[in-house]
Each structure stands twice: as structure tokens, then as C-alpha cells.
Simulated assay, not measured.
Amino acid sequence: MGFYAHAEDVHLLHQRLDEDPEIAFILQEGPGRWRAVERLDELQGKTMLWHVPGGPLPLLGRGAGEPDTLIENPFAGWRERRAGLDSSVPYFGPSWPSVLLLELYTPGWRGLETNIVPLSGLSYFGGQPESKAQPTTYRWWRRMRDWVRRHAVLVTRSGPLEGTHADVWAMSAALRAIQAGLARDDYPLKLFSRPRPGNESRR
């Protein structure tokens, strides 16, 4: 689910997630070290969300000789044994069903261009046929999508805002900025992993 956000929108989204008893944020505490927390001071950048009722988090083994286990208490922290390609977020395998990836950027954030609204997004793979997501996580995802739609308008990534190719949600403040002349980043959702400024020290 792709969307455009501005500063006011970030505050609204941050408050929505902070107050959600089902969601925890996964915070980096050093190289390869992570901890689940109930609240964050800053939400921008890449953040892994854990839907707590959706089930535990895996601790992946280093290879074929070391089996995967479950993290006993994510709120107490853990050191990962197998890292992914992106060191800014923990790695739970290609599509662990109780986590979502939030990529949230605004104009000018940590060196981004000030005259372009970056493309943000919330990714969830639990709706895929092969997923083993709990029904409760899928219901949360649907509620979250509905929340975004109540606070946003579907727009295109370039040209006139309205059209048959509208596929990105513009939250209220971002929509006003775009209508005032700010350009839109049209980077495809599948390429959200391109290098961006780091998201260290988010507490």
C-alpha cells in the first residue's frame, strides 16, 4: 500500500500506531541487536512492525546446521544469527506472517529533496495464498487499510492527480502540498529497498 505523507500526516500515523495495543515496533539497539518496544519517539525511515497477536517472531539459524527457533521474549531483546541484505531492519525470512514493513518519508527528511513528496508504503505479505498468517493479523491489516483510506485520497504518481492510473494514497497534508505544486516521487513500490538515508537512533 503506497502513500504520500507530509509532517502532519506522520504525526497522525505515528499516533495511530502508538496507541494500537496490537502493534509493537522493532528497534535496533546495535549491529545485529533488536528489541520490540511499544512506542517510538520518531517513526520516519524504515520500521518493522510486529502484530503481536499474530504470533511469535523467528530467530533464524546461521545455516543448514543450525535450526530456526522462536524469540522467547522480543521485548527483552535478541541478537540475530542470520541477517538480511538490509541491515536497517531485522530479517525474519522473506514473508514472516506477523510482521509488516513501514517505509515512511517526508520532503527534506535526512537529506531527501525538499521539493518532492517521497513515496512511502506499508508492506504486508500475509494476504498471499502461501502465507500462514493468523486471521487476526489479516483483519488488522484490513482495518489499517481502511484507516488510511479514511485519511487519504487515491491519486496518480505523475500528471493530473485524478485518472485511471491512480494507485497511491495521498494523506491530507501531503495532498495539500501536492496541490500547491510539490512534485511526487513515482518510485515503484517494489523498489522501496533502494538506498535511502539511514534510520539509526529512532528512540
Rank of each mutant, 00 (worst) to 15 (best):
A170Q: 00
V168Q: 12
I178G: 08
D185N: 15
Y187S: 14
L182W: 12
L154P: 00
A170T: 00
P129N: 01
H165P: 01
L85C: 03
S131M: 13
M171L: 15
I116M: 04
M171R: 04
D146F: 09
E130L: 09
D185K: 04
G93F: 07
G84W: 02
V153M: 10
A174V: 04
R184Y: 02
G159Q: 06
S131I: 06
A173Q: 04
A83D: 11
Y105T: 07
E113G: 07
P129I: 05
Y187I: 02
Y138T: 13
Q179F: 11
R82L: 15
R149N: 13
V155P: 01
P135N: 06
I116R: 09
L175Q: 09
A76G: 12
D68R: 00
W140K: 10
L161A: 15
V148F: 15
P118E: 11
P97N: 11
W109R: 11
L161C: 06
L119I: 04
W169F: 14
L119E: 05
G126C: 13
L112N: 11
T164R: 14
D86Y: 04
S98C: 05
D68E: 08
A170R: 04
V168L: 07
R184M: 03
G126A: 13
W169V: 04
I178P: 05
G121R: 03
S87K: 11
E113R: 15
D146N: 15
R176E: 14
T156M: 09
P107E: 06
A177K: 05
G163S: 04
E72L: 14
A166F: 00
G111T: 05
S123I: 14
G84L: 07
W78C: 02
G127I: 12
V168E: 06
L122E: 04
P129Y: 01
G108S: 02
A83G: 13
A166Q: 06
E162L: 14
A170H: 06
E80A: 10
S98T: 03
R157E: 11
I116K: 11
D186M: 01
R110S: 10
S172P: 01
Q128H: 12
P67S: 10
R143Q: 12
L122I: 15
G181H: 14
L100I: 00
D86G: 03
R139L: 13
G111N: 10
W96R: 01
S131G: 10
Y138W: 07
T106L: 10
S98I: 03
G181Y: 10
A170V: 06
W169M: 12
G163L: 01
D86Q: 12
W169Y: 13
V153Y: 03
P135I: 05
P160Y: 01
V89L: 09
P129Q: 03
D167T: 14
P107M: 12
A170E: 09
W96Q: 01
G93T: 02
I116Y: 09
T156K: 03
S98G: 08
W147Y: 11
Y91C: 00
R157Y: 04
D186F: 08
I178L: 15
Q134P: 06
P90K: 08
G108Q: 02
G93E: 01
L182E: 05
S88H: 10
D68N: 14
